[in-house]
Each structure stands twice: as structure tokens, then as C-alpha cells.
Design a binder for these strands. Structure first.
Lengths: 344, 344
DNA sequence: TTGTATGCGTTATCAC
DNA sequence: GTGATAACGCATACAA
């Protein structure tokens, strides 16, 4: 028998289809014995209910979409992995979707909601400049995970979020450098037009320098190159190469992601510089690679695992118990490694 | 209007549902004008057809599943990204599924086929020890991508594959080391029980040593640790640390993946050794990280992009034109970088 | 070229 | 506690 249906099972068991359906879906009003019998037959016949039909009937699929900008970043990979596990635990399906840089994540979400009848959406990464009006049309609960820079104009009651305090953590990184005697600190960040985490972490950079009475040198604020992949090692490499060529003096670099930091290190090393003897480099995220790099990368670590799990937990709370939206902020952690040194 | 259906569109256009359906699905026998009119109405109303209903009718979803063992490996991430693009181009959906190490990929495939009515399956990575009998029950065309070690007992007409010649490429790596004067060459590979690429690349290792009249030293054949994630940096690190502690002499390491190679490098560096002055290290895969590591990692590069695209191309050929299964073998490429040196 | 009617496999609403 | 039956939204055979 090629494709079994619920009818086949019903016939094999000598019962009606609705009884089989009840057995499958753990309905209360069914005789335990007949249920057991049915379940056994199902097991022996390797029958699997057709998801399309279920979803059609139920009018919504048990599916959560995760929309990612920038999947190649290992920081997201590990989050996605954990989210998938959690979603599977709830017997839901994870629909993974990449958003190209030029695409509008909410437009994609709209289409996906209608196509797949989603129950919830996770927006992962990318920047998030949307209007309240457009977001309010999103009929499905959604959560912004590790996304900073959400405009204040958007009503916080309409969505959940999980993130670190990017201003504070950016401050933490640069403050650390300052306390170690660095005064000429370069940063690699997003272009000004970007309202995302880059802007917030840069704000932390400003604040820290100001608190330490250090003047801002605009020539040390480097932005990623638009023609290269964002947050990539290659981007960090090129930006740092140009910075070195500019002859602008500096003793440390704060890169807003570990991948950028690694690219920066490689550029410094290729130029014959030593880390941390000549330059200190600090990153952001806490990806595994940073531990194994040579030198290992000092960084602000985000608690990925907990953040991913909390993301799904909040989302399901909102979906199932219809609770209010929540906004959880995790603390980052300064992980001291080999790429930084005190120059006091 | 909350959820539009094809009926709503039909009513709005003053036509029957089948006409709308024809317009949506590019059917030939429809008046171009009415079609244009319908499409305009659809566009204005942001109606999106319900996928579940379509799939139910069509009795198979336009979906391809990609089953991955080891998603955290960046080597797979980039392949998946390209595959998704290609699959989307064909207007199909990509269903991504991770296989845990203890799971049987074919069992998972069975369930998925019935649940989702898949049109095709890509098995990505992992090892593949299956019986002909079980595989023949897989009703859907499938392709093994970058998977070596497929038993000869399985009829090659029942599946497609895309890979490199792992024996040959393993040989290429070790032969290169030998030609550069290395005689005591360690390798980090999979445990013996594993019939996968690890075994094949190890075979290449044996062959190369034999051809260069070098005796095999079993103490230099290191296997990944079972309690750590396979192919991970951490694993490479621990294995290399133990190798160093064993005091067994060697001058080079051939790691069967770049991540293992990076872990190995870090262990050597942490032990105060220099690369490549004291030890040469060569990896396998050609991931981007290898370029940026310090030192950059000499490796056997697999042409990921082409392999991913070819995977999807072959799969769709088999699905759509019902062509015969194909087996494509790509050549690897030795990428010479900083982590190896001649000691002649 | 177009509209009507049927069924895809499932769940929910009834009767029994 | 159980079984028939009507939807769910769409594609398609068939009639017009």
C-alpha cells in the first residue's frame, strides 16, 4: 500500500474515521482500549497523517517561521539550531526563511503567513525599520530576537523581544579598552543609515569615550563596506586594511561582531602587526570561533542558548496562553582573552 | 477581509473559481485579458493561495527536504544557502531538517515524505550506511550530497550523488605533505566504525604514505572523540592535545575537515608550538574561516557553490524530466596557505 | 474560453 | 463512546 489514509486505518480497525482521528489527536471521549488498538495498528502500518489536510482543516498550521537576515553568521546558526529543537519539542514545525538584504522582512512575513498559516514568527537579526501601521497588520504573534534599534514609535504591546542592551554592552567593551589605557580606539560598525544594533553599539562607544574624557575622532569610526557581505570576516578585513593605509593612529579596535574582529585581526597580522602587542582587538557576540582564533578574541558574549530558548518560550506563551507580549533583556558578558592588552 | 480565498477573488472579478485558478497557475487555455485583469485584482488584494489546500489537491507539495547531519559546520551552511536559492527559483519550498547523530536519516525521510508529500530529498553530510532494501522503499527521488562511503551494494541507479573523490583528495593532501619532506604525519579522522568520508580520506592517507614508502604508524592515526561534537574545533583541539601529550613524534597533521584543523592549530599554539615552523597542518573543505585564520590554513577545497547548484540541478532533472540518476564527482583543489611548510 | 461540480485527507459537529 | 457527514481551499475533469 503506497499512501495510507485515515480511511484505510479505520477500515483495518473496523471503526469509523472519526474514532481514528480521536485516537490520533488524544481526544478525551474515546474508549481507552479501542484507542490502544488503533494506535497499535497505526504503528504497524507506518501511517503518517497528511499534514496538508490537517492544516487545511485546522485553518492554521502548527508552524513557526524564523526569518533570518544573514544566515552565514555562525552566531545565528547556533540560535537556529536551538530554536528548532524547542519548536520540535512543541510538535510544531520550523519554517526557516532567509531574507535577502534588499527584501523587506515584514512583506515576506505577510506572504508566508497566508501561504503557510503560521502561528508565530521569529525575526532574527537584520535591522528593523518598520512602521507601526504595517506591523499592526501582522495578524500573527511575533518576536524580535537579538534585534536592537526598534523605533520607540512602535507600540511595545504589539510584539515581544529578546535581546541584549546593545548600548550598554557596547559601552562595556569600549569602557574596558579605556580602562586599559587605550585612548585611540577605532570601531567597525554599520553605516549611519542603518538604525540597527550597529547604531546602538556605536552609541555605547560614544558614551564610554565621553565618560573617559576622550575626544571622538571621526576618522576612527569605520563603517562596513556596502559591496561586501555585512558582518563578514572579509568586510572586517577590508575596512581594517583601509584604516591602516589611512595612517590614522590607533591602539585598539572595537568590532561590533566577532567575525568583523577576526577579519580585522587578519588584516593587522597581514600588515605585519602583532596582536595584542601593537593593537588590541575586541569583538562582540561570543561565537565559538573566537575561542579558537589565534590570538583568541576578547569579546562581549551574548548568552545565545538562553536567548534562543527564551525566544521560543515567550512566543509560545503568547500563542497558547494568549499572555501579553514581553521584552526580555539579557546581560552580556565580557570574556577576556588574548587579543587585548593593557597599555597603561 | 481577513483571509481571502480563491472564491473571494472569483467574485470580485466576476468570474468562476477555475478561471482564477487557471490565471494563477499559468494555464494555457485562458484569455490573456481576463488573466491580466484577475492578476491585477489579486495583486491589489494581497491574496496568497493557501498552500495546504494546493498540496492536498496536488497530492504532493512542491517541497524538497534537505536533511543535514551537523548544521553547525559552516561548510554546510553555505551549501544550504545556495540550495535554498536554487529551490526557490524553481518555486519550490525547502524543508530543512537536522538529523541528530543517533537518528536514522532514512527513517526521518520516511516520516517527512508522508507528512509533507515531498518531491525530492537531499541528504547532506553524515554517514550513510543503509541497506538497499530500505532505500528502495524511499518512493521519492533523492540525492546524496557530499557524502562518501556509500556501500557498493546499493544500486547506483536508485539514487544520485554529488561529491568529491574522497580517497583521491585525501591522497592529494597527504601526498603534498610527503612531497614536502614530511614523513611523520598524523591524521585526525573518524572512528573506525564510521564508514563515511572519514574512512575514504584515511584510505587516501594510507595510499599516499605507501606510495612514498613510509610505514604506517597507528599511533599517529587519531580519531575524533565520541563525547564531543563531530568535526568540531573543540574535537580537533582535544585530539591534538592528547597527541602532544603522548610524546609520539610527528611533523605534520592532516585533519579531515578545516574545523578540526583549526582546533588542532589552536592546541599546538597553546602548547607553545609554532605553525608551520614546528608543525605543518592541512585541512579539508575550504571554508572561509581557513583563509582568515592565523596562520591561514592550507586545505583541500571542495567547490561548494557548484556542488550545491549541481545537487539541485540533478534532483530537479530526475523529478521533472524523469531522467536517470546521475553521479557527479567534482575535483578538489589544493589551496596552499601558511599552515604548511617544506622541511626538505 | 469559461463555469460547475467533485474530491484531496483531515477534523469537528452532529446525531445515534 | 462511536460513526456518518460536512466543511477547509484549491485544482481539474467535464460540461457548456
Amino acid at each position: 500500500m503506497d499512501q495510507m489514509t485515515i480511511k484505510d486505518i479505520a477500515r483495518m480497525c473496523g471503526v469509523g474515521v472519526s474514532t481514528v482521528s480521536r485516537a490520533i489527536n488524544n481526544h478525551p471521549d474515546i474508549n481507552e482500549e479501542t484507542k490502544a488498538m488503533i494506535m497499535k495498528v497505526i504503528k504497524d502500518s507506518d501511517y503518517v497523517p497528511n499534514n496538508s489536510a490537517r492544516n487545511l482543516k485546522r485553518s492554521d498550521a502548527k508552524a513557526i517561521a524564523v526569518l533570518v537576515k544573514g544566515i552565514t553568521n555562525p552566531f545565528f546558526s547556533s540560535m537556529i539550531k536551538i530554536m528548532e529543537e524547542e519548536i520540535q519539542k512543541k510538535k510544531y514545525t520550523l519554517v526557516l526563511h532567509h531574507i535577502e538584504p534588499y527584501e523587506d522582512e515584514v512583506d515576506v512575513a505577510f506572504t508566508l503567513i497566508k501561504e503557510k498559516r503560521l502561528r508565530g514568527i521569529v525575526f532574527l537579526g537584520g535591522f528593523f525599520t518598520q512602521t507601526e501601521e504595517k506591523l499592526s497588520k501582522l495578524q500573527v504573534p511575533f518576536i524580535l530576537s537579538t534585534i536592537g534599534g526598534i523605533p520607540e514609535t512602535i507600540n511595545k504591546k504589539t510584539y515581544s523581544s529578546v535581546s541584549v542592551d546593545d548600548v550598554k554592552e557596547g559601552y562595556r567593551a569600549v569602557d574596558f579598552l579605556c580602562k586599559n589605557g587605550h585612548k585611540k580606539i577605532a570601531t567597525i560598525t554599520t553605516p549611519k543609515s542603518d538604525q540597527s544594533i550597529g547604531k546602538l553599539r556605536l552609541e555605547g562607544y560614544y558614551k564610554a569615550l565621553t565618560d573617559h574624557h576622550i575626544d571622538i575622532n571621526p576618522n576612527l569610526i569605520c563603517t562596513m563596506k556596502g559591496n561586501l557581505e555585512e558582518y563578514s570576516m572579509q568586510n572586517g578585513y577590508e575596512v581594517t586594511r583601509e584604516l591602516l593605509e589611512s595612517k590614522e593612529e590607533f591602539t585598539a579596535i572595537f568590532a561590533i561582531s566577532d567575525l568583523l574582529a577576526i577579519g580585522a585581526c587578519k588584516a593587522l597580522l597581514d600588515a605585519g602587526k602583532r596582536i595584542p602587542e601593537d593593537y588590541s582587538v575586541i569583538g562582540f557576540d561570543g561565537i565559538e570561533m573566537g575561542r579558537f582564533y589565534n590570538p583568541s578574541i576578547t569579546t562581549i558574549k551574548q548568552p545565545v542558548d538562553e536567548m534562543a530558548m527564551e525566544t521560543i518560550r515567550i512566543l509560545f506563551d503568547v500563542i497558547k496562553q494568549n499572555t501579553k507580549h514581553r521584552h526580555k533583556i539579557f546581560p552580556g558578558e565580557l570574556v577576556l582573552r588574548q587579543s587585548t592588552k593593557s597599555i597603561k
